[in-house]
Protein backbone atom coordinates (compact mmCIF):
# COMPACT_ATOMS: atom_id res chain seq x y z
CA UNK A 1 0.00 0.00 0.00
CA UNK A 2 2.86 2.33 0.72
CA UNK A 3 3.95 1.82 -2.84
CA UNK A 4 0.57 2.99 -4.02
CA UNK A 5 0.75 6.15 -1.95
CA UNK A 6 4.11 7.09 -3.33
CA UNK A 7 3.16 6.16 -6.89
CA UNK A 8 -0.09 8.03 -6.67
CA UNK A 9 1.70 11.17 -5.59
CA UNK A 10 4.33 10.80 -8.24
CA UNK A 11 1.67 10.54 -10.89
CA UNK A 12 0.26 13.84 -9.71
CA UNK A 13 3.49 15.68 -10.15
CA UNK A 14 3.84 17.62 -13.34
CA UNK A 15 7.47 16.68 -13.67
CA UNK A 16 8.71 13.30 -12.54
CA UNK A 17 11.28 13.65 -9.75
CA UNK A 18 14.84 13.18 -10.76
CA UNK A 19 15.78 9.67 -9.83
CA UNK A 20 19.18 9.05 -8.38
CA UNK A 21 21.52 7.10 -10.54
CA UNK A 22 21.32 3.55 -9.36
CA UNK A 23 23.71 1.78 -11.66
CA UNK A 24 26.63 0.25 -9.91
CA UNK A 25 29.61 0.49 -12.18
CA UNK A 26 32.18 -2.27 -12.11
CA UNK A 27 32.62 -2.07 -8.32
CA UNK A 28 33.25 -5.10 -6.19
CA UNK A 29 30.29 -7.38 -5.88
CA UNK A 30 29.95 -8.47 -2.28
CA UNK A 31 29.39 -12.14 -1.80
CA UNK A 32 25.94 -13.51 -1.04
CA UNK A 33 26.79 -13.96 2.60
CA UNK A 34 27.24 -10.23 3.21
CA UNK A 35 23.99 -9.46 1.42
CA UNK A 36 21.99 -11.98 3.37
CA UNK A 37 23.74 -10.89 6.54
CA UNK A 38 22.21 -7.46 6.03
CA UNK A 39 18.70 -8.53 5.11
CA UNK A 40 18.19 -11.86 6.88
CA UNK A 41 17.12 -10.73 10.38
CA UNK A 42 14.36 -8.37 9.24
CA UNK A 43 13.31 -10.68 6.41
CA UNK A 44 12.98 -13.67 8.73
CA UNK A 45 10.90 -11.69 11.23
CA UNK A 46 8.59 -10.20 8.61
CA UNK A 47 8.05 -13.41 6.65
CA UNK A 48 7.94 -15.56 9.77
CA UNK A 49 5.16 -13.43 11.19
CA UNK A 50 3.18 -13.13 7.96
CA UNK A 51 3.59 -15.75 5.23
CA UNK A 52 4.10 -18.63 7.63
CA UNK A 53 1.00 -17.88 9.76
CA UNK A 54 -1.01 -17.01 6.64
CA UNK A 55 -0.39 -20.49 5.24
CA UNK A 56 -1.12 -21.97 8.63
CA UNK A 57 -4.37 -20.02 8.81
CA UNK A 58 -5.43 -21.58 5.53
CA UNK A 59 -4.74 -25.08 6.87
CA UNK A 60 -6.67 -24.16 10.03
CA UNK A 61 -9.61 -23.01 7.94
CA UNK A 62 -9.96 -26.60 6.69
CA UNK A 63 -10.20 -27.94 10.25
CA UNK A 64 -12.47 -27.94 13.24
CA UNK A 65 -10.22 -27.05 16.17
CA UNK A 66 -10.55 -25.34 19.54
CA UNK A 67 -6.83 -25.09 20.25
CA UNK A 68 -6.71 -27.93 22.77
CA UNK A 69 -8.31 -31.15 21.54
CA UNK A 70 -7.23 -32.90 18.36
CA UNK A 71 -8.01 -30.97 15.19
CA UNK A 72 -10.55 -32.59 12.91
CA UNK A 73 -10.23 -32.13 9.15
CA UNK A 74 -13.53 -30.92 7.73
CA UNK A 75 -12.59 -29.96 4.17
CA UNK A 76 -14.45 -26.90 2.95
CA UNK A 77 -17.23 -27.18 5.55
CA UNK A 78 -16.15 -23.99 7.31
CA UNK A 79 -16.49 -22.04 4.09
CA UNK A 80 -19.92 -23.60 3.44
CA UNK A 81 -20.97 -22.66 6.95
CA UNK A 82 -20.06 -19.04 6.28
CA UNK A 83 -22.64 -18.78 3.52
CA UNK A 84 -25.41 -19.82 5.92
CA UNK A 85 -24.26 -17.90 9.01
CA UNK A 86 -26.81 -15.18 9.90
CA UNK A 87 -24.42 -13.58 12.44
CA UNK A 88 -21.76 -13.21 9.78
CA UNK A 89 -24.28 -11.73 7.36
CA UNK A 90 -25.35 -9.24 10.03
CA UNK A 91 -21.74 -8.39 10.82
CA UNK A 92 -21.06 -7.84 7.11
CA UNK A 93 -24.05 -5.50 6.95
CA UNK A 94 -22.84 -3.49 9.96
CA UNK A 95 -19.37 -3.26 8.45
CA UNK A 96 -20.87 -2.10 5.17
CA UNK A 97 -22.89 0.56 6.97
CA UNK A 98 -19.80 1.83 8.74
CA UNK A 99 -17.79 1.83 5.49
CA UNK A 100 -20.55 3.74 3.71
CA UNK A 101 -20.60 6.32 6.52
CA UNK A 102 -16.89 6.61 7.08
CA UNK A 103 -15.14 6.41 3.69
CA UNK A 104 -16.97 9.15 1.73
CA UNK A 105 -17.00 11.40 4.79
CA UNK A 106 -13.30 10.96 5.46
CA UNK A 107 -12.35 11.56 1.81
CA UNK A 108 -14.51 14.70 1.58
CA UNK A 109 -13.41 15.99 4.97
CA UNK A 110 -9.76 15.41 4.11
CA UNK A 111 -10.16 17.15 0.76
CA UNK A 112 -12.04 20.09 2.30
CA UNK A 113 -9.58 20.52 5.15
CA UNK A 114 -6.58 20.24 2.83
CA UNK A 115 -7.95 22.89 0.48
CA UNK A 116 -8.72 25.14 3.44
CA UNK A 117 -5.37 24.64 5.14
CA UNK A 118 -3.41 24.97 1.90
CA UNK A 119 -3.20 28.75 2.03
CA UNK A 120 -1.07 31.32 3.68
CA UNK A 121 -3.32 32.73 6.35
CA UNK A 122 -2.55 33.76 9.89
CA UNK A 123 -2.66 30.98 12.47
CA UNK A 124 -2.76 28.25 9.85
CA UNK A 125 -0.13 26.39 11.86
CA UNK A 126 -2.35 26.40 14.94
CA UNK A 127 -5.31 25.09 12.97
CA UNK A 128 -3.16 22.37 11.48
CA UNK A 129 -1.88 21.27 14.88
CA UNK A 130 -5.38 21.13 16.36
CA UNK A 131 -6.78 19.15 13.45
CA UNK A 132 -3.84 16.74 13.28
CA UNK A 133 -3.49 16.15 17.01
CA UNK A 134 -6.25 13.50 17.33
CA UNK A 135 -4.20 11.29 15.03
CA UNK A 136 -1.84 10.35 17.87
CA UNK A 137 -4.68 9.41 20.23
CA UNK A 138 -5.01 5.65 20.66
CA UNK A 139 -8.20 3.68 20.09
CA UNK A 140 -8.29 2.90 23.80
CA UNK A 141 -8.23 6.60 24.73
CA UNK A 142 -10.69 7.50 21.96
CA UNK A 143 -13.02 4.81 23.27
CA UNK A 144 -13.07 6.26 26.78
CA UNK A 145 -13.57 9.76 25.36
CA UNK A 146 -16.42 8.57 23.14
CA UNK A 147 -18.34 6.89 25.95
CA UNK A 148 -17.97 10.06 27.99
CA UNK A 149 -18.80 12.67 25.33
CA UNK A 150 -21.80 10.70 24.04
CA UNK A 151 -23.08 9.56 27.41
CA UNK A 152 -26.88 10.05 27.27
CA UNK A 153 -27.13 11.36 30.86
CA UNK A 154 -24.19 13.71 31.39
CA UNK A 155 -22.27 13.67 28.09
CA UNK A 156 -21.23 16.91 26.45
CA UNK A 157 -23.11 16.22 23.21
CA UNK A 158 -26.50 15.75 24.84
CA UNK A 159 -25.72 18.67 27.12
CA UNK A 160 -25.22 20.92 24.11
CA UNK A 161 -28.41 19.58 22.52
CA UNK A 162 -30.27 20.34 25.76
CA UNK A 163 -28.95 23.89 25.90
CA UNK A 164 -30.01 24.64 22.31
CA UNK A 165 -33.37 22.94 22.93
CA UNK A 166 -33.01 19.81 20.80
CA UNK A 167 -34.23 16.35 21.92
CA UNK A 168 -31.81 14.12 23.82
CA UNK A 169 -30.40 11.12 21.98
CA UNK A 170 -29.36 7.63 23.09
CA UNK A 171 -26.15 7.64 21.02
CA UNK A 172 -24.09 4.55 21.88
CA UNK A 173 -27.07 3.05 23.68
CA UNK A 174 -29.31 3.37 20.63
CA UNK A 175 -28.83 0.55 18.06
CA UNK A 176 -29.59 2.97 15.21
CA UNK A 177 -27.11 5.62 16.31
CA UNK A 178 -24.20 3.67 17.79
CA UNK A 179 -22.46 3.09 14.46
CA UNK A 180 -22.85 6.75 13.53
CA UNK A 181 -21.13 7.76 16.76
CA UNK A 182 -18.27 5.36 16.06
CA UNK A 183 -17.94 6.77 12.54
CA UNK A 184 -17.85 10.34 13.88
CA UNK A 185 -15.11 9.53 16.35
CA UNK A 186 -13.13 7.63 13.69
CA UNK A 187 -13.35 10.75 11.56
CA UNK A 188 -12.06 12.82 14.45
CA UNK A 189 -9.08 10.50 14.83
CA UNK A 190 -8.31 9.96 11.17
CA UNK A 191 -9.13 13.20 9.39
CA UNK A 192 -5.46 14.10 9.72
CA UNK A 193 -4.44 11.21 7.51
CA UNK A 194 -6.54 12.06 4.46
CA UNK A 195 -5.84 15.77 4.99
CA UNK A 196 -2.09 15.27 5.01
CA UNK A 197 -2.19 13.11 1.88
CA UNK A 198 -4.32 15.68 0.04
CA UNK A 199 -2.17 18.56 1.28
CA UNK A 200 0.96 16.91 -0.08
CA UNK A 201 -0.79 16.29 -3.39
CA UNK A 202 -2.08 19.87 -3.60
CA UNK A 203 1.40 21.20 -3.06
CA UNK A 204 2.62 19.08 -5.97
CA UNK A 205 0.17 20.68 -8.40
CA UNK A 206 1.82 23.60 -10.18
CA UNK A 207 0.18 26.89 -9.22
CA UNK A 208 0.20 27.98 -12.88
CA UNK A 209 -2.68 25.60 -13.62
CA UNK A 210 -5.26 27.26 -11.42
CA UNK A 211 -3.83 30.69 -12.23
CA UNK A 212 -4.34 29.93 -15.90
CA UNK A 213 -7.90 28.87 -15.18
CA UNK A 214 -8.54 32.10 -13.30
CA UNK A 215 -7.08 34.11 -16.12
CA UNK A 216 -9.41 32.28 -18.47
CA UNK A 217 -12.34 33.47 -16.38
CA UNK A 218 -13.13 30.45 -14.23
CA UNK A 219 -14.42 31.24 -10.76
CA UNK A 220 -12.64 29.58 -7.82
CA UNK A 221 -15.31 26.86 -7.61
CA UNK A 222 -15.02 25.99 -11.33
CA UNK A 223 -11.26 26.13 -11.21
CA UNK A 224 -11.26 23.70 -8.27
CA UNK A 225 -13.63 21.12 -9.75
CA UNK A 226 -12.36 21.29 -13.35
CA UNK A 227 -8.66 21.86 -12.84
CA UNK A 228 -7.49 20.92 -9.36
CA UNK A 229 -9.79 18.00 -8.56
CA UNK A 230 -9.00 15.97 -11.72
CA UNK A 231 -5.31 16.39 -10.87
CA UNK A 232 -6.04 14.77 -7.52
CA UNK A 233 -7.78 11.72 -9.03
CA UNK A 234 -4.98 9.20 -8.34
CA UNK A 235 -4.73 10.40 -4.75
CA UNK A 236 -8.49 10.15 -4.31
CA UNK A 237 -8.41 6.57 -5.55
CA UNK A 238 -5.58 5.72 -3.18
CA UNK A 239 -7.23 7.39 -0.20
CA UNK A 240 -10.59 5.74 -0.94
CA UNK A 241 -9.02 2.27 -1.17
CA UNK A 242 -6.93 2.83 1.93
CA UNK A 243 -9.82 4.11 4.02
CA UNK A 244 -12.09 1.31 2.77
CA UNK A 245 -9.58 -1.28 3.90
CA UNK A 246 -9.33 0.44 7.27
CA UNK A 247 -13.13 0.59 7.53
CA UNK A 248 -13.61 -3.07 6.65
CA UNK A 249 -11.14 -3.99 9.38
CA UNK A 250 -12.78 -1.90 12.10
CA UNK A 251 -12.26 -3.47 15.52
CA UNK A 252 -10.49 -1.27 18.09
CA UNK A 253 -13.05 1.45 18.47
CA UNK A 254 -15.92 -1.03 18.65
CA UNK A 255 -14.10 -2.92 21.38
CA UNK A 256 -13.39 0.21 23.39
CA UNK A 257 -16.89 1.70 23.05
CA UNK A 258 -19.78 -0.73 22.59
CA UNK A 259 -18.19 -4.23 22.50
CA UNK A 260 -20.48 -4.98 19.58
CA UNK A 261 -23.67 -3.77 21.25
CA UNK A 262 -26.31 -2.52 21.70
CA UNK A 263 -28.21 -5.58 20.42
CA UNK A 264 -25.13 -6.47 18.34
CA UNK A 265 -25.75 -3.38 16.21
CA UNK A 266 -22.03 -2.55 16.02
CA UNK A 267 -20.71 -6.07 15.65
CA UNK A 268 -18.38 -5.74 12.66
CA UNK A 269 -16.78 -8.60 10.73
CA UNK A 270 -13.48 -8.33 12.58
CA UNK A 271 -15.23 -8.01 15.93
CA UNK A 272 -17.21 -11.16 15.10
CA UNK A 273 -13.99 -12.84 13.98
CA UNK A 274 -12.30 -11.92 17.26
CA UNK A 275 -15.27 -13.26 19.26
CA UNK A 276 -15.21 -16.51 17.28
CA UNK A 277 -11.50 -17.00 17.75
CA UNK A 278 -10.81 -15.79 21.26
CA UNK A 279 -14.16 -16.12 23.04
CA UNK A 280 -15.63 -19.23 21.44
CA UNK A 281 -12.29 -20.78 20.45
CA UNK A 282 -13.53 -21.70 16.98
CA UNK A 283 -10.04 -21.47 15.49
CA UNK A 284 -10.97 -23.25 12.26
CA UNK A 285 -14.12 -21.32 11.47
CA UNK A 286 -12.53 -18.02 12.51
CA UNK A 287 -9.68 -18.66 10.06
CA UNK A 288 -12.17 -19.32 7.28
CA UNK A 289 -13.93 -16.02 8.03
CA UNK A 290 -10.54 -14.28 8.01
CA UNK A 291 -9.82 -15.72 4.57
CA UNK A 292 -13.23 -14.54 3.39
CA UNK A 293 -12.36 -11.05 4.61
CA UNK A 294 -8.98 -11.25 2.88
CA UNK A 295 -10.67 -12.18 -0.41
CA UNK A 296 -13.09 -9.25 -0.15
CA UNK A 297 -10.29 -6.78 0.64
CA UNK A 298 -8.25 -8.02 -2.29
CA UNK A 299 -11.24 -7.87 -4.64
CA UNK A 300 -12.01 -4.27 -3.65
CA UNK A 301 -8.41 -3.16 -4.11
CA UNK A 302 -8.10 -4.79 -7.52
CA UNK A 303 -11.59 -3.72 -8.60
CA UNK A 304 -11.18 -0.06 -7.71
CA UNK A 305 -7.70 0.11 -9.21
CA UNK A 306 -8.74 -1.46 -12.52
CA UNK A 307 -11.92 0.64 -12.70
CA UNK A 308 -10.10 3.90 -12.01
CA UNK A 309 -7.36 3.11 -14.53
CA UNK A 310 -9.96 2.42 -17.18
CA UNK A 311 -12.12 5.44 -16.43
CA UNK A 312 -9.25 7.91 -16.41
CA UNK A 313 -8.23 6.90 -19.93
CA UNK A 314 -9.56 9.66 -22.15
CA UNK A 315 -10.68 11.54 -19.06
CA UNK A 316 -9.92 15.12 -18.22
CA UNK A 317 -6.23 14.45 -17.86
Amino acid sequence: MTGTAVEARQRVRARPPVRAVRARRGGRVPDGLTGWGFVAPATLIVLGLSIFPAVWAFLLSLQDWNGFSAAEPVGLDNYREMAADPDLAAAALHTLLYTALFVPASVLLGLGLAVTLNRRIVLVGVYRTLIFLPFVVSAAATGILTTYLFNPQFGLVNNVLRVVGLPQQGWLEDPHQAMVVIAIMSLWGQAAFTTVIYLAALQDIPAELSEAARVDGANPWQSFWHVTFPQLAPVTVFVAIWQSIQAIQLFDLVYTTTRGGPLQATETIVYYLWTLAFRELEFGYASAVAYGLFAVTLAITIGVTVYSRRSTVGGPR
Binding site: V46, L47, F52, P53, L60, S287, A290, Y291
Partner: peptide
Protein backbone atom coordinates in the same frame (compact mmCIF):
# COMPACT_ATOMS: atom_id res chain seq x y z
CA UNK B 1 9.14 -9.50 -3.64
CA UNK B 2 7.91 -11.80 -0.88
CA UNK B 3 8.22 -9.04 1.68
CA UNK B 4 6.22 -6.62 -0.48
CA UNK B 5 3.56 -9.26 -1.15
CA UNK B 6 2.86 -9.57 2.57
CA UNK B 7 1.39 -6.04 2.57
CA UNK B 8 -1.75 -7.55 1.12
CA UNK B 9 -2.23 -9.95 4.06
CA UNK B 10 -4.60 -8.40 6.62
CA UNK B 11 -3.43 -8.74 10.21
CA UNK B 12 -6.74 -10.35 11.20
CA UNK B 13 -5.76 -13.37 9.14
CA UNK B 14 -2.65 -13.81 11.26
CA UNK B 15 -4.20 -13.48 14.72
CA UNK B 16 -5.12 -17.12 15.34
CA UNK B 17 -1.98 -18.85 14.04
CA UNK B 18 0.27 -16.22 15.64
CA UNK B 19 -1.50 -16.75 18.95
CA UNK B 20 -1.06 -20.53 18.68
CA UNK B 21 2.58 -20.06 17.65
Amino acid sequence: GLILATIMIPTQLLMVPTYVM
